[in-house]
Design a protein around this nucleic acid. Sequence first.
DNA 1: ACGTGTGAATTATTTCACAGCT
DNA 2: AGCTGTGAAATAATTCACACGT
Lengths: 208, 208
Amino acid sequence: MNDIEHDIPEIVINRLPLYVRTLNDLKLLNQTTVSSEHLGFLLQTTPAQIRKDFSHFGKFGKQGRGYNIDFLLDELRNILNLNKTWNTCVIGAGKLGQAVINYQGFKKEGYLIKVAFDISTKKLSNINDVEVRSISEMNQYIKELNIKIGIVTVPSADAQGVIDRLVQCGIKGILNYAPMKPMIPNNVSCMNIDPVLSLQSMSYYLDK
Amino acid sequence: MNDIEHDIPEIVINRLPLYVRTLNDLKLLNQTTVSSEHLGFLLQTTPAQIRKDFSHFGKFGKQGRGYNIDFLLDELRNILNLNKTWNTCVIGAGKLGQAVINYQGFKKEGYLIKVAFDISTKKLSNINDVEVRSISEMNQYIKELNIKIGIVTVPSADAQGVIDRLVQCGIKGILNYAPMKPMIPNNVSCMNIDPVLSLQSMSYYLDK
DNA sequence: ACGTGTGAATTATTTCACAGCT
DNA sequence: AGCTGTGAAATAATTCACACGT
């Protein structure tokens, strides 16, 4: 390959955040360099895979010396567009939505929950400093607050409708907590979080 | 292939719960049969993949007629060991742990949270009818209550220690909410839930 | 001597395409 | 006519292995 690589496999993209996370950990331990061997050990993967993954984007290492952690981190964060903050909103202010809003892990990584929406006008209030607005005001808020990511925490039956509206509002990414597979246009990306599916996959192995 | 197939790819196992979920949805709509074509449409995958996935386990369909939903569901649920309930425990009774305990989706699918553990003796009490016990009593409770799955909701720094203890207590499956990749012996299975990783992968596509 | 970057080889996964049953 | 189950073919992903720079 020569310069800029096109159409990188999704499976590779999905591993990059793991590298970022582990490099952050190493940095906190005052490490300055790391080899693909060591990174592979920490992530229980092969050095070859790590080097191959990086090779899609450029040459980040030094032969005989490994990778400079600060440099590699910055490169990976740039590739993933993490060197900026992203404005998000939560749709569904029930128990799950409240838990998501109260979770501090998003903000820590630059994903800011700017507003929440719910159909019920009863629970219009604040959750952990996040205003809860009527779902009818979605379009206005998403545009005014430059929100690019929607976090869906409504019941399964309502999720497709909510997602359709989000897409119409110009949302570019959806994190879907509803246990269903939404239909999404292919200029919008979507990741699904369903711990029950994980438990069910796991159950296959539990009797072995 | 002939009778019982060995060593089925994990990627296949991970898709089975999606089929189960969708078949349940169809059942609620009073459908009695489904083709791989239709199931593929609902899950945005190819009919060939679905048929190939099933073929690892047997012949569940009828040529020219598709699959009987009740029959297929029962077969898939048996393969995944879902036709029973699983006892679980939650380790970490902080905000995240409380949210997990309050989430009704686990019980609905047969994953029963029988007890929670925490180091802090201050918060020893009940969360949604689930007793919170000291982490020092873990071994005793896991054995007495026949708990096979541990749901880890402690901070990242404590997770490996907790997981090591769970493994020593004979736990067979771990659902890990801590944002780290634990070291696990290979007779124990582990699935990780980290919504931040999903957002970070998604961010790659948001500028495209 | 160490460890990256990368073509080539290997292995895994998906898709094709069609014989055969209902 | 419709649709499964499955070998064969095609594509994708991983791993090997080594030339080469530090």
